[in-house]
Simulated scan of single mutants.
Amino acid sequence: MDISEIADPAFTNEAAESTPAPSQRSDDNTKAMIEVPPSSAADDKHLTEALTALVNAVYSTAERDIYSTDFERTSTEDVADLLRAGELAIAYLPRPDANEDASSFHQTWGTPIGCISMKQISPTTGEFGMLAVDPAHRGAGVGGGLVRFAEERCYRNLGLGAMRLELLAPVHFEHGGKTRLQAWYESLGYVHVELRDFKGAYPHLHELLSGPTEFRVFEKRLVD
């Protein structure tokens, strides 16, 4: 599924380097940390609800006018499945008074402000999606940090040499957000490699489109 509109003006093309970034990082402005929570986080109702609300709010804005009606990008069940599979990374603000014995992510780790999903799609290639950042924390490198984290995880942990992403963009009108987002991905080293059949991949969503739309696939080599 297409990536949300989080193009971050504070993030440069660091991710285009051949060597991925460290798997855990702290941003100078937000002090955000990025981790893949343990699978037990899937049972944290507070966390799954918070992430679902964040992703749906971001995509509602990012894909306005692309669809003829509103729809929810994800659900608590989908988020829980990703957490259980270890395929969802979370950017969060660490709590100074974190309680290691607490049962919730918020009490133990901190406040989630962004997320990204990542998975292996072939013996050599990974894919990221569902990239979302709380609007209050944009412009501080959180989105770029999430992308770098996903690249690092697929490269270091899975031994994959390439990463892909999908971008849904209308062709019957100029969507400024999608144009900026594509330029941002290209600045990170992603290259347009093919057009996919959106109807075939997501028939239930294709019916909701407001007009002709391209389903673009981008790829980046993680090593030279």
Rank of each mutant, 00 (worst) to 15 (best):
S60I: 07
A41S: 13
E63S: 00
L146A: 06
T48R: 07
P135G: 02
E152V: 00
I90V: 15
V133A: 04
E151W: 09
D134C: 07
V133Y: 05
H46E: 15
S60D: 15
A50E: 08
D101F: 12
G143C: 13
M130F: 03
G110T: 06
L93F: 06
R153K: 13
G110D: 06
P96S: 15
Y67T: 06
A91T: 11
A50M: 00
M130Q: 04
I66R: 01
N56T: 07
S75D: 08
D65G: 00
S40L: 07
I113M: 09
G145Q: 10
R64G: 00
A98Y: 04
T111G: 00
D81T: 11
H137A: 10
T111Y: 11
T48E: 09
I116Y: 03
G141D: 04
A57M: 08
T74I: 13
T69V: 14
T52S: 09
T124K: 08
D65F: 07
T124M: 08
E77D: 14
H106D: 03
R148H: 10
E35R: 14
D78T: 10
E152G: 10
D81N: 08
G141Y: 07
D134H: 05
E63Q: 01
A136Y: 07
E127C: 09
A53E: 15
R64T: 05
P38M: 08
S40R: 06
E35G: 00
K119Q: 15
A57E: 14
A85C: 08
S103R: 12
T76I: 12
P123A: 11
M118R: 12
D43T: 11
